[in-house]
Each structure stands twice: as structure tokens, then as C-alpha cells.
Design a protein around this nucleic acid. Structure first.
Lengths: 238, 238
DNA sequence: TAACAAACCTGACTTAAGTCAAGGAAATTA
DNA sequence: TAATTTCCTTGACTTAAGTCAGGTTTGTTA
């Protein structure tokens, strides 16, 4: 269960180039970048590894370099509410930096993943000395707040096929196939996880996918989704 | 409709004391406080006045000094999704400061309200010169992100009576009557708004209130809610 | 490659919550 | 105070989504 300490190797940071590519650190001087390397580590995790559990003592936050991470809460009755599906270059578990709490969520790898682990103390020191980082961080938080506001709006006012349409559309966009004659995505996460992210269960997701398919909007083949009628899909999503 | 410019008077800031009481500005020097007064205004709004509409050109953010504000989104089919119910000392519409967008939501007064309006340009200048403000702002954003994560969890995994229980509990806490033999609140917002905030409709809210009452958990009298069994209520909320 | 376990799908059924319609209470305005 | 509007409640009904149970497919591991 508590396998977030075994089974993952610490790799030395491949120079400061990795850091430079991250929006958060892109403007730092060489010295500051060196500082960052002193309190951060790149770690590799295997599929199904836990990075941390809800309630663990807070030690720092993460930036995903490669792979996919599921961030979720487990309620008292054992149900998983998926809060975020993290993709590369996004940070997570950075809220407790400023809240002084334990990890409020659980993070689990959905595939082999590479993450940058950044220690709380080191980072807070850095941020006090480099205010421009806090501005970047503010921008990042603002973006996420906006996304969360949208998520709340969707959850309160949209039915599941509509939320699904929106999800597929977003996936198509990040896959970069939006402009093709037949846009498509290969889902990188199990449908159970997508269901929990959309606030439903697999059965309902399965039926919603079928519904969209029957209506000629999409075509589903295992983990691949092909969009036949993107206009219709956009209409459902809004 | 567009009455956010008429009908509200601009009042001169009652010295710097108002600002000092706000967490965001509490550590500023006298000179900086004077600066803040130069690009901010206290305004009074009447019940049902709009502060801004979704899509309006962004000019700045707000801190509520007195009253209650409903922050919501209107979807294409005309439904209102209430995103926040703002209480005094909380700021709102600060996300677009860092996102460069128009107002993404609409803000409407639920009662006569006093707000501090802070201009985007002035504030951004100030924040560049006073990094400690950005740290306070980060703390504020972190707190809200955490609240939004909770909100998403509730919306995805809890039924309406449970969400309602949680809402009542929060209201009891802010009312400060939690420790009394019979904790109570007087709801400061119409039930329609509470319903939209909980992701449902008035009818269902009405029935959920009745259900909690029939189970002996609460007693409802118009806008007042009395808690008979706070243990039970807490249990429902978690 | 066989064997096992996840993940996924489908059908029959139940239930929570939404819709529609009507009437009553409360608050606002005349 | 009466009149009007907004807010709230209740009942009968519909529908979306959840539950339960079975079976299939897919993917892992031995």
C-alpha cells in the first residue's frame, strides 16, 4: 500500500535545462537555478505507484515531467473523487505550501512517470528572495482557479453526455488533432478514472459514449475516440 | 439591466483604517496605503444592482466590506450556476488580474453592499513593488483553490441532503452559534440562490430541508434554521 | 501461452433529482 | 393597506443516473 518510497529511483537532474523549460523557473539566473537543483530531485515512478497519500505529512510539491498522475480524494464511504488528471509540465500539491496542512489529496501514477519533487522549505526561501516567482505562481493559480470555476459550473449545470463532450474536446485539443478531417485521441487514462473525473461511474460513462456514438458524433474503438462531427460535439459541450 | 453604473455612490475612503483591516494590505507602509487609496474607491450598491456582467471589459477587482454578493455564470440555456456567495472581507474578480480576460462571471448584490473597487493597473504596479503582497495573494488563492477542490469533491460524490448539511454547518460556524445548545443561522440569501450554489433547484432544496427536519436534525422557520442534532448534521456532511 | 485480474460493457431494475403545475407566504411598491 | 411581485412549498409525474448482476474483452504475469 505505502509504496511511495520503494521502487522509484532518484535521478540526477539533467542539467539546468529541464528547469529552464518550466514556466515557473524560466526567468531565473544561473545561480538561482543552481539553488533550485539543490532542493529538488527528479524521481521516476512506476505505474500504480503512489506519490503521496491524503493525510501524509507535507514535504513539498511536484512538477510532472513525463507521464500521467491521478490526483483524487477518497471519501468516508470509499468512493474516489478525481480532482485532477495531471499532464506533463503541470505542477500539483502546491496549495499546501501556503496552507500549512498535510497532503489533502492522494496522487497515483497512471503510467510510468517522471516528476520533479521540490522541497517546501527550499522553495519558500527562494520565493521570498525572488518575488517574480510568486507572480508566476499567481498566474498559475489564477489559471487553475479559472479551470475549477468552470468545472464547478459544468458539474452543477450539465448532464453527463455534455460533460463528456467537453472532455473529449479538450483531449482532442491537447492531442493536436483538432484541425484534421477526423480528429481523434487515444485516452491515456482508464475509463473508470475519466468517469470519476466527470462525477459519474463507469456504467454511465459507457452508456454516454455509446449514446454519442449512436448519434453519429463520435466513433469509439477501445481507448481511441474518433470525432465524426466536431460541430455537433462543440455544440453539446457548450 | 445594465445598471452597474447608475444608482451607486462613490464614497471617500474612511481614512486608511479600512484598508489596514484587510489581510491583503495589513502590512503596508503609510505611503503605500496612500497609493492604494489613489487607485481604489469605496462604492455603495443597492440590492439587485450589478457590479459587472460576464463579458464586460475588465477594469479591476473588488473587496467586499459590507453586504452579500452573488457571483455566478449564466449558461447558454439561461441557467444560473452560482460559483461563490461572497461575504465581507473576501475579494472577488481577482483572477482576471493575471489572466488578461474580460470578467468571466457576473456579480450581483443580494442586499445593500459596500465594496472596495481596486483598479487593475494601479494594483499590478503596487504588487511589482511590494512582493509581500503577492505572497498574501498567493495565500488567498491557495485557500480558495482548496475550497474549490472541496466543492468539486462534494458535487461529484455527495447527494443533495449531504451537501445541504455541509452548507448549514458552514453557515452555523460563520454565524458563531456553533457552541450553543441550539445552534442557528438566519440565511442571508434567497433559497433559490442556495439551491443554485448547491447544484440543484429550489424544489429539491425545499424537499431536502423538509427531509432533514422530518429526521429531527434541524428545524426550519422561514429564513431561520435551528440545529437540533449537530452530531447528526456533521455526520451527514462528511 | 495459459491463467488471472483488471477494465469494460450490457441489461433489468431502483432511486434521486428534475419538470410541470398550482397555491400560499413574504416582501416590495403603490 | 392593498396590490403586485418575488419567493417558497407541495404534489404528481418523468427522466437521468445509480445499483446490481452477468458476461466479455483486454492486459499482465507466471
Amino acid at each position: 500500500m505505502n509504496n511511495h518510497l520503494k521502487d522509484n529511483s532518484t535521478e540526477s537532474i539533467d542539467s539546468k535545462e529541464t528547469l529552464r523549460r518550466l514556466p515557473l523557473f524560466s526567468e531565473l539566473s544561473i545561480e538561482d537555478l543552481r539553488k533550485v537543483t539543490s532542493f529538488s530531485r527528479v524521481k521516476k515512478f512506476q505505474k500504480n505507484d503512489f506519490l503521496f497519500h491524503q493525510g501524509d505529512f507535507y514535504t513539498g510539491f511536484y512538477i510532472l515531467l513525463k507521464g500521467t498522475i491521478k490526483v483524487y480524494k477518497v471519501s468516508s464511504d470509499g468512493k474516489e473523487a478525481v480532482v485532477h488528471i495531471i499532464k506533463p509540465l503541470n505542477s500539483f500539491a502546491d496549495i499546501p505550501l501556503f496552507e500549512g496542512t498535510d497532503y489533502p489529496v492522494t496522487a497515483k501514477c497512471l503510467e510510468e512517470s517522471l516528476v520533479l519533487c521540490i522541497s517546501k522549505e527550499g522553495f519558500l526561501e527562494l520565493i521570498y528572495e525572488n518575488p517574480e516567482i510568486s507572480l508566476r505562481m499567481l498566474a498559475g493559480f489564477a489559471k487553475r482557479l479559472k479551470a475549477m470555476v468552470n468545472q464547478v459550473e459544468d458539474l452543477t449545470s450539465k448532464e453527463i453526455p455534455n460533460r463528456l463532450a467537453k472532455y473529449i474536446l479538450k483531449e482532442i485539443k491537447t492531442a493536436g488533432t483538432e484541425k484534421l478531417a477526423e480528429p481523434f485521441v487515444k485516452l491515456s487514462v482508464p475509463k473508470t478514472t475519466i468517469a470519476a473525473y466527470l462525477g459519474t461511474i463507469t456504467e454511465t460513462l459507457s452508456r454516454s459514449l455509446k449514446k454519442l456514438q449512436d448519434e453519429g458524433v463520435i466513433r469509439v474503438n477501445g481507448k481511441s475516440i474518433f470525432v465524426n462531427d466536431i460541430k455537433r460535439l462543440k455544440d453539446l459541450a457548450k
